[in-house]
């Protein structure tokens, strides 16, 4: 199986502080890879480093077969068109309507006829469950769940091979979060996506992720499918997965596995 993201001995820091200290992992094609860690453990820093928003201090990051820090401007742009990013707050362009937001990357990178531009954007929005009535709304008129869905549609606009999701279910109620998990899973299957997500949501980890990485103390302390993670003895992983909220889910997972 191909490896889409390959991170080796990554060190990232700000000034005196080292946030990530020797992180290595691989994300394989066609899987949903989830990343967990406590608040401030550097999950978002990791994501932002991979997509090139933060500088690397040491180590290498290879995305879609290219080492981004070494790549030319053109090569980097070519890679950027092959991935989509869902930001935590959606990061929709506030002066464009919902459908214009989805059309934006299409308009920039592909020279489509106006009719097809509309059709494609409409299909993408319907795929994430945004009905035609809402296509002409402005981002400020959307609820939190809808904002995330539109942002997902925009990240999928260019038919990326790889999608980065930053806390896709945070701020959603359990039902919407469940629906969103389901949506990610369906889209991953129909579009053949590889998904790299950062999450706090135990339900999402159990329901969607094929493999999970646990980040603590700037390192990956456990990595693998849920069964492996549940056997981890690292104190943070134990309290997270077997703690007050994680315990019940873990028990359910283990009984299901048996």
């Amino acid at each position: 199986m191909d490896t889409l993201i390959s991170v080796r001995d990554l060190v990232v820091g700000f000034g005196q502080r080292t946030v990530l200290n020797g992180v290595s992992f691989d994300v394989r094609q066609g899987e949903i890879f989830g990343f967990v860690g406590g608040s401030g453990s550097g999950k978002s820093v990791l994501l932002r480093t991979i997509i090139g928003l933060l500088p690397v201090r040491e180590g290498t990051i290879e995305v879609l077969g290219t080492e981004l820090s070494q790549a030319s401007e053109q090569a980097r742009q070519a890679i950027q068109r092959r991935w989509g990013v869902l930001f935590q707050q959606g990061a929709l362009f506030s002066s464009l309507t919902v459908i214009q937001n989805v059309q934006f990357p299409l308009r920039e990178f592909l020279n489509l006829s106006p009719g097809l531009l509309d059709d494609i954007a409409r299909v993408k929005l319907e795929m994430v469950g945004i009905k035609a009535d809402d296509h002409n709304k402005l981002p400020s008129e959307l609820s939190g769940g809808m904002t995330k869905r539109v942002a997902l549609a925009r990240s999928l606009a260019m038919d990326p091979e790889l999608v980065f999701l930053d806390e896709p279910t945070s701020g959603l109620d359990p039902i919407s979060a469940g629906d969103f998990d389901e949506l990610i899973k369906t889209l991953q299957k129909t579009l053949g996506l590889t998904v790299f997500m950062i999450t706090h949501d135990l339900e999402t980890l159990h329901a969607v992720c094929d493999r999970i990485g646990v980040l603590a103390d700037g390192k990956i302390v456990a990595c693998g499918p849920m069964e492996t993670i549940l056997k981890s003895t690292h104190p943070w992983a134990v309290s997270y997965f077997h703690g007050r909220r994680g315990g019940a889910l873990a028990a359910r997972h283990l009984t299901k596995a048996e």
Binding site: D118, D119, R122, V123, E126, M127, A132, K189, T190, L191, G192
Partner: peptide, 15 residues
């Protein structure tokens, strides 16, 4: 087939 079915469901709706 899955991909086509999904897209067809939404794009065939005449606007």
């Amino acid at each position: 087939v899955d991909l086509y079915a999904q897209v067809h469901r939404f794009s065939a709706v005449p606007h």
